[in-house]
């Protein structure tokens, strides 16, 4: 464990908590893409299957349980409890266009052709594009509540911090994983446009307005 990875995990945890609080407090999931949340749930379920087979550390196990539970709770709040506030017609990204390529890519480019490895690889590829429906929703509505932009900033920062973690691990332990790094770079690049808007607008107290 290193400071970059710890900061990344805490940023990820913060993002998930911000989202849950936003939906719970405002009793509304307006502006949030349910499709992205479905993709994140798939990412966690396919990546954390080893929760029951290999014990790495208490931290590792607890975080995996928290991520799976929080994503389940978010889906429940969005699709059951506050279903009426779900923005169906703006949340229209075709997630099969993300799922299918990720499955194919995971079958072609992976470290090992075993079930666990393919699922892990699929999860890594899917996570890199899972935010697209959310960014698509923000672009369609043209704006985002400030709490939603804080959520996106924390979520984007998590994988950016992981990139620093991978640089550190390469230098300190000569450990690297090109699949995770490549997907992490793609994932972080998708947030760049949002990071620019967040820093130039939201941090100055303005609302996140995308140029029409």
């Amino acid at each position: 464990m290193n400071i970059f990875r710890l900061a990344g995990d805490l940023s990820h945890l913060l993002a998930i908590i911000i989202l849950l609080l936003k939906i719970w407090k405002t009793r509304s999931c307006a502006g949030i893409s349910g499709k992205s949340q479905v993709l994140f749930a798939i990412v966690y379920l396919t990546r954390y299957l080893d929760l029951f087979t290999t014990y790495i550390s208490l931290y590792n196990s607890i975080m995996k349980i928290v991520f799976i539970a929080a994503s389940g709770a978010t889906l429940y709040l969005m699709y059951v409890k506050f279903k009426a506030t779900y923005d169906h017609n703006h949340d229209s990204f075709r997630i099969e266009f993300l799922l299918i390529p990720c499955v194919i890519l995971a079958l072609i480019i992976n470290h090992d052709f075993t079930v666990m490895e393919i699922l892990w690889t699929f999860s890594i590829y899917l996570e890199s594009v899972a935010i697209l429906p959310q960014l698509f929703l923000v672009s369609k509505t043209g704006e985002a509540e400030s709490i939603t932009s804080h959520y996106l900033f924390a979520l984007g920062s998590y994988r950016a911090l992981y990139l620093l973690n991978w640089i550190y691990r390469y230098m300190a332990e000569s450990h690297y994983d090109l699949i995770a790094i490549f997907a992490g770079v793609v994932q972080t690049i998708l947030y760049c446009d949002f990071f620019y808007l967040y820093i130039t607008k939201v941090l100055k107290g303005k609302k996140l307005q995308l140029p029409a």
Binding site: R5, D9, H12, D50, T54, I56, S57, N60, M63, K64, F67, H111, D112, W120, Y162, N165, H175, Y176, D177, A180
Partner: peptide
Amino acid sequence: RIEEDKKDEL
């Protein structure tokens, strides 16, 4: 070597 220690990341 990469295999086992890759899985220690979330």
